[in-house]
Design a protein around this nucleic acid. Structure first.
Length: 287
DNA sequence: CTCCAGGTTCCGG
DNA sequence: CCGGAACATGGA
């Protein structure tokens, strides 16, 4: 990659697939540049490029990148906990190397509030629009990247102004949640120390946050690998594969099954089933 | 035009 | 507890 003034450091990443990881619907702000990607990890601009087992990282950010992409997660040990069934094995073959990212919790929470009833492409657009409109610009190479606005920054924006980012009914929820966090009504730091069930209940007090989004925050923001978000895609997978032919399988039943069946790293299993289904059940065109 | 998208909330059985 | 409907917006 030719980026003036930015050197690259090579690190060995045998069990890692950068592209799968960035395109699996966990994060929505990374941009394709040259042969790789640029994005912010908190407020640090990072460039990444992968060639088989070698990851090229902008100089000096190896630790930051290793932590963000959870390169310390023992994937083979995690795979060994997956249930041994055809659908799971197929998803594993397809997604091998996909890692669950350690996201900044607020950014993760806010982004998933905007994700309700939206396609991934739209979530990306809203994310960039919110960042550009209300976030802090950070220069990288010849352009600017924008940090995700802090709770206080979004709480200070009117709902009307937030709607210019095409959030629709989600604007009210995002603003309301930002205000509660900014006021200290809910402290994400404290929630991160609570056990799964209590943490989910606490997050569900926020407007626009229900069981699914709360589980996303636990899984992607708080490193709770057992958390199992059930969206329309995973709902389809569970019903088609594990409850085939049964009528009226309730949401509660799916939730109970997913917690029992997929084990201590159910969140990983969920992400693999989700991405595999999206990419092979072809409901719509590629992105 | 119609349908659906990584849902949540409210309301009536 | 459960099923339905409303909620904004844009792409297929």
């Amino acid at each position: 990659m030719t980026v003036p003034g930015i050197g690259l450091t090579a690190i060995e990443t045998p069990e890692f697939n950068l592209r799968l990881t960035l395109e699996s619907g966990q994060v929505f702000h990374w941009l394709r540049r040259g042969n790789g990607w640029v994005g912010l990890i908190d407020r640090h601009p990072v460039y990444l490029e992968q060639h088989s087992a070698t990851l090229l990282v902008s100089e000096g950010q190896e630790q930051l990148v290793s932590r963000y992409f959870a390169l310390d997660h023992p994937l083979e040990e995690i795979y060994a906990t997956f249930p041994d069934d055809p659908a799971m094995n197929e998803a594993l073959t397809f997604c091998r190397g996909l890692r669950l990212i350690r996201q900044p919790p607020w950014e993760c929470l806010a982004t998933f509030i905007t994700s309700a009833l939206k396609q991934m492409k739209h979530i990306q657009q809203m994310s960039h629009s919110i960042r550009r409109s209300f976030g802090t610009p950070i220069s990288w190479d010849t352009e600017f990247l924008y940090a995700y606005p802090a709770p206080g920054q979004l709480a200070a924006v009117s709902e009307t102004d937030l709607r210019t980012c095409r959030l629709g009914f989600r604007a009210k929820n995002l603003r309301g949640t930002a205000a509660m966090i900014d006021a200290g009504d809910i402290d994400l730091e404290r929630v991160s120390t609570m056990e799964d069930g209590a943490a989910i209940a606490e997050l569900c007090r926020l407007p626009g946050v229900g069981d699914k989004i709360a589980n996303c925050v636990l899984l992607f923001g708080f490193e709770r690998p057992r958390a199992f978000p059930i969206d329309v895609w995973i709902g389809r997978v569970l019903r088609e594969i594990y409850f085939k032919g049964m009528r009226k399988v309730s949401a509660a039943r799916l939730k109970q099954f997913s917690q029992e069946y997929f084990g201590p790293f159910g969140g990983y299993a969920q992400q693999y089933l989700f991405h595999h289904a999206r990419r092979t059940w072809r409901r719509r065109t590629r992105e």
